Structures are given as C-alpha cells and as structure tokens.
Amino acid sequence: MRIGDICTAQTAHCKRDITLQAAAQLMRAYHVGDLVVVEQPNGEQIPVGIVTDRDIVVIVIAEGLDPTSITVGDIMTSELVTVSEDEDVYETIENMRFKGVRRLPVVNQLGGLVGIVTVDDLVEFLAQEMTELSRVSTRQQSQEKHIRR
C-alpha cells in the first residue's frame, strides 16, 4: 500500500519566521504536536523543517528562553527526512526506523507537501492489517463447515 493512502492529508504547517509562541498556539488550535515548516518558492509548499512541541519545551521553555522572541526557524529540525506519497508503507516504516524519526512529511513528485505520516498512523494501519489476518482462520473454519455439510 502507498503511504499517500494512509497519511494525514490535513497537515498543520507554518513558515520559519513565526514565533514559537505563535507556533504553540497553532499546535493547540489544530490539536497536533508538530508543525511542518514550509517555503513556497514556486507555488508548492516545500517542507524545509519540522518543529515539535517537545522541541519547544526542551530547547526553549526548559532553558528559560522567551518564546515570543525566538522563531520556528531558530530551532526547527532542518535535516528533514521526507517520504514520497508513492512509497510503500513497509519501506516507510524501515526508513523511519533507520533514521530514528517518528514523523515524516509526505511529498508529491514536485516536493510539495501532501500530508504527514506518524508512528501512530502506522501502528493503526498495522493493527487493522493484523485484525484482517486474524480473520483468516475464522473464515477458513466457516468455509469448511459449509463444504462438509
């Protein structure tokens, strides 16, 4: 299955020049723990970084810094790992494991943001797959009873 089929399409995003306080307010408004940082050089929203609620707490709040004077661009993770919307789910899982990331922005062929996939999304997908797999035995037993009547 393609990762584009299971990613969250409505991705909260921002530009690098907003303050961390504004970023935290966006996270609160959208009920998310991260924002994909984007630039729009040619009409496409190109992911250039990501900032998480944990980044804000560990880098800014814990150090007693002022979240109204620090921008997202100051602390965002700029060595961003993305995934193509056409990549296979299992390849994506391997990529996340290898890179040690819990969230991946999903991009189209032009590099434009189309969604985000998280570990939680993948756990939910795998749980559904396991549920379907567990139904094989039940279905087999049902078919045997029907055939052997």
Rank of each mutant, 00 (worst) to 15 (best):
V57R: 13
T68G: 08
D74I: 03
Q40W: 12
E85P: 02
Y30F: 11
V36A: 05
K99P: 00
G33T: 01
V60G: 01
M76H: 10
H31A: 15
V57E: 06
L35Q: 10
G49R: 12
H31T: 10
M96D: 03
T77P: 01
D66R: 12
M76A: 11
V51I: 14
M27T: 02
R28M: 14
P41I: 02
V81G: 03
V81A: 08
V72N: 10
D74V: 04
Q45V: 00
I46N: 05
M27H: 09
V89G: 04
V81I: 12
V81H: 07
D86F: 14
V83Y: 04
L80C: 05
N95C: 05
V32T: 12
E79Q: 14
T52Y: 04
V37M: 08
D34N: 12
T52A: 03
V48F: 07
G64Y: 05
I46E: 08
V38N: 06
E79K: 15
I50H: 02
I61Y: 10
T68P: 01
E79D: 13
G64S: 02
I50V: 08
L65K: 15
I59D: 13
G43L: 03
T92I: 07
I75W: 08
D86A: 14
G43M: 07
N95T: 13
D74E: 15
E94N: 06
T92K: 11
R54S: 01
P47R: 04
T82K: 12
I61Q: 06
V37G: 03
V32P: 00
G43D: 10
D88C: 02
E87T: 09
D34V: 00
I75E: 06
V89S: 06
T77I: 07
A62C: 12
S78T: 14
V81K: 07
L65A: 14
V81N: 05
V72P: 02
E39W: 07
T52V: 00
T71Y: 15
N95M: 13
L65I: 01
L80T: 06
P47Q: 08
E63N: 14
R97E: 09
M27L: 05
I75L: 05
L35G: 03
V32R: 03
I75M: 08
D34Y: 09
V83H: 02
I56D: 02
V89D: 09
V38Y: 06
T77L: 06
M96V: 02
D34G: 05
S78L: 04
Q40I: 09
V72Y: 12
E94M: 03
S69Y: 03
M96G: 00
P67Q: 12
